[in-house]
Design a binder for these strands. Structure first.
Lengths: 109, 109
DNA sequence: ACCTCCGTACGTAGACATTCGAACTATCGC
DNA sequence: GCGATAGTTCGAATGTCTACGTACGGAGGT
């Protein structure tokens, strides 16, 4: 049997204050920027890329991102694949994600 | 002499994670929606409109909103006038504020 | 001067966030 | 089965956020 799946909010259950609160954390914003860059990501690869030490720390952040509707977490084998819920976010809050990601890039300059 | 002024970040000192974190709080998001509606606002009028009990609670939120660059606080007589820094936010993060405000309205439906 | 109104500063209390280590479950390969 | 890998769960420590009451200071009106 494949692993258990997590509870995700439906598209119409997403709330903007939850999304903003989730993305107001620098580490979680970095995660979203990384996922937006495309490619396959599991928890460990993100953890290594961002230089986080403890896996259990990220487990906390996965839950915040998942329960706010920002990412989707899909178990596959012994990995946990992570994807940005771009279609849902774009449908519900047009332009929000792009504005945030552009803003994050602007802050780096 | 008029009252002391507060420290506000310059436009280019604003950071998107600070803005998101500030607006991730439902009460502060309501404040921004109210200020965006136009009209003159001082601290007490916002407090009364939103049904907040303690002034000192709002003083905390004014600081968060001010230091993240979302609002400007300008003492005038014995009042403290509040304005949304729309021009600065629009210049630095095009579309962000509109997307957030539209999202907040969408969540109400 | 006096009183009143507007808002801040301070201390405090409880709730929540963030991070970590250690123990645990499940999966894959041998 | 055995060992290694991928993540989670749990508990604890630390820090931050939110809200409140009280006290304070500045500005206006009388």
């Amino acid at each position: 049997m494949s692993g258990m799946s997590y509870r995700h909010p439906e598209r119409d259950q997403i709330r903007v204050d939850g999304v903003l609160s989730a993305l107001g954390n620098p580490l979680r914003l970095s995660v979203v920027r990384l996922l937006d860059g495309g490619g396959d990501h599991n928890c460990t690869s993100v953890l290594n890329t961002l230089g986080v030490t403890a896996k259990s720390t990220m487990t906390h952040h996965w839950r915040v991102l998942r329960e706010s509707g920002v990412i989707r977490q899909r178990p596959s084998g012994r990995e946990n694949l992570l994807t940005l819920r771009r279609e849902d976010l774009d449908a519900r809050y047009p332009g929000l994600l792009d504005a945030i990601l552009a803003g994050a890039r602007a802050d780096e300059s």
